[in-house]
Nucleic acid binder design. Structure first.
Length: 600
DNA sequence: GCCGTTTTCGGCCCGACTGTTTTCAGTCG
């Protein structure tokens, strides 16, 4: 059995959870959490490393490395087995109830024998919690409410695509309030994670109360969870939780860093602050008053009440600079090496929306499922500032939506008619279907008449990994196939994607000069950020394209760029960051001698 | 358990809010 890094990381995350429930030292728990994170983010397959090499990873020591080795050879970790035997299984489940943490779970188990969500429900109904120390009437009510929410569906993470519209709406409403100088959504949404647990909103104002009140009273809010002076938490109508922090404009940058996270990134940069004799919190980067007093040799009592001295805080850039680091774009803030890289000046300049020169995957209504005319699509792409657009309608093997040869020739004439006034190069393209044997639609000569082709898997998702991988590798070798569309086939929150060997795909892409798509549709984001990072490390070329089926879909480019950023991709890794000549050079390079050239 | 511009031991990020508390523990992010 070939264990993936994710499998291994999962073992250590479980150890951390179970240790917490065993009342272990909190720092030891954190060490396991950190090692799980380090393993999950490791750039190489752990199975290829020696125990000594594993212990070189930051956050992984000799103890963890030997447990990894144990797992890789035997498929088990004795310590984890012991913990599983020792900690009642239901306790982990109990801590998933909002407001109920490990301490309370252990206490409920010890006092009442509660070992599952169901048992807690029964205990509540029997009034068994009354009289337990630290648990009053209010806690009982809150637990009931939490259980009810747990009973309702979908309390977990939701696709970011489902939250971004409501986040932007809330921001827009807060931004127009008097005294509010800035508003942003932060958290995992700003980091462009593909799913989010809640919406984090940040506002700058010297008078927080009316801003808080405005959210609490919003018609988008279903329930208020917490309402303090500096922080408000609510449940929105669609079951999504939102947290609002309001800070002084002088603290905006520090608060944005704090609220954007990730938690692991924040911990790392706060440690860095501590090592420099500073304190980093959501209000600023500060030199402590007592430290100053000591530095000046003054007596602390004589110094009296002095304020902490702000070093930075108005902007994020200021905070990072004061920590001796390059600015870290939000999607990179996951503690996967970006802190060290930013400190050592080797953080790559990741691709941005401004680097994108065109879109290489779009459908017009020539495709059965396209909703926009060719002219509208081209005009919209031009309006977005694109220099070129590959219209890649479905090819004929996709029986429902595909276009046959005559249809493609007719579409080619339609493209030619539009070409002059378009103000943008329209690439005559197609989205080909990868057959079970790796073949694609039409024939070689017909395919070489296109300017640009995407090839994608649309059928037979259930094939075993070797077969699935082989069919894509075969398609890559075709001289007219320029990019593999949505390479893993996953749909966020819907289906996991087919079984493929990504490393082989990356090697094949490099060897054949075929790009791998970062499909920017927020339902797909395929490749994922993690997969992009592996592709970048492997030297593969990417495209970032919207797979638009309507004009509005062209706006999804930012999600694709965010995903590419999460994978540390630079403009140099992305084919559609090249100008038209650069793009066509790549297309022509893939074609053999004597084959038709595509001209600008 | 991990780690080092306080380096092989003694620390380990920081603050808001709630509830049950007379000064704080638990939870969350």
């Amino acid at each position: 059995m070939a264990w993936t890094n994710e499998d291994v990381a999962g073992q250590f995350a479980e150890i951390a959870t179970l240790l917490k429930l065993s009342g272990a030292d909190a720092f030891r728990v954190r060490a396991y959490e950190r090692s799980a994170g380090a393993i999950g983010a490791a750039p190489v397959d752990l199975a290829t490393l020696s125990t000594e090499e594993m212990a070189q990873l930051k956050g992984v020591g000799a103890s963890t490395a030997s447990k990894v080795a144990e797992y890789l050879t035997s498929g088990r970790i004795a310590m984890l087995e012991d913990l599983r035997a020792k900690v009642p299984a239901g306790l982990v489940e109990l801590t998933r109830i909002p407001g109920l943490g490990p301490k309370t779970a252990v206490m409920l188990h010890g006092e009442l024998g509660v070992d599952s969500v169901e048992a807690l429900r029964t205990a509540l109904d029997a009034g068994a919690l009354r009289g337990l120390k630290g648990l009053g009437a209010k806690t009982e009510t809150n637990l009931r409410a939490s259980l009810e929410r747990l009973g309702a569906k979908d309390t977990g993470r939701v696709p970011a695509a489902d939250a971004i519209a409501i986040a932007e709406e809330l921001c827009a409403r807060l931004a127009v309030l008097p005294g509010v100088t800035a508003v942003a959504y932060a958290g995992s949404l700003r980091r462009m994670r593909e799913t989010i647990g809640d919406v984090d909103l940040l506002a700058a104002s010297r008078d927080p109360a009316p801003v808080m009140a405005s959210l609490r009273e919003s018609d988008l809010v279903e329930r208020v969870l917490a309402a303090g002076e500096k922080k408000t938490s609510v449940v929105l109508r669609r079951g999504i939780q939102a947290d609002l922090r309001v800070v002084d404009p002088d603290s905006w940058g520090a608060a944005l860093v704090y609220f954007t996270g990730s938690k692991a990134h924040n911990i790392r940069i706060r440690e860095r602050a501590v090592r420099r004799g500073l304190l980093l919190n959501e209000y600023g980067l500060l030199r402590r008053a007592d430290d100053q007093a000591e530095a000046q040799g003054a007596d602390r009592d004589a110094a009296g009440e002095t304020e902490d001295d702000p070093v930075a805080g108005r902007t994020e850039a200021e905070v990072y600079a004061a920590l001796g680091m390059a600015f870290v774009p939000p999607p990179l803030r996951e503690d996967t090496g970006e802190v060290e890289a930013a400190a050592e000046g080797r953080l790559p300049r990741v691709v941005t929306l401004a680097d994108i020169r065109g879109d290489l995957h779009a459908h017009s209504d020539w495709s059965g499922d396209g909703k926009t005319s060719l002219a509208e699509l081209v005009a919209a792409a031009a309006a977005r500032g694109h220099r070129y657009l590959a219209v890649t309608d479905h090819a004929e093997d996709l029986t429902m939506n595909g276009i046959d040869r005559e249809g493609m020739r007719a579409r080619r004439r339609a493209i030619a008619e539009l070409a002059d006034g378009a103000g943008i190069r329209i690439l005559d393209g197609a989205e080909l279907n990868i057959g079970i044997d790796g073949s694609v639609d039409y024939d070689l000569d017909f395919l070489l008449e296109f300017d640009f082709c995407v090839a994608s898997v649309h059928t037979l998702f259930g094939r075993p990994e070797p077969e699935q991988t082989a069919r894509i590798l075969t398609a890559m070798r075709h001289p007219a196939v320029n990019v593999i569309g949505h390479p893993t086939g996953r749909k966020i929150g819907q289906r996991p994607g087919y079984e493929i060997d990504l490393d082989q795909l990356i090697e094949g892409a490099v060897a054949t000069g075929t790009a791998l798509e970062v499909n920017a549709s927020p339902r797909r984001l395929d490749l994922s950020g993690d997969a992009v990072r592996r592709a970048v490390d492997g030297g593969a070329l990417l495209t970032i394209s919207c797979d638009a089926h309507s004009v509005g879909d062209l706006a999804s480019m930012r999600y694709g760029v965010g995903t590419a950023q999460r994978g540390w991709a630079t403009a140099a890794h992305v084919l559609n960051c090249r100008d038209l000549d650069g793009l066509l050079d790549a297309v022509n390079a893939k074609r053999g001698p004597g084959m038709r050239r595509v001209r600008a």
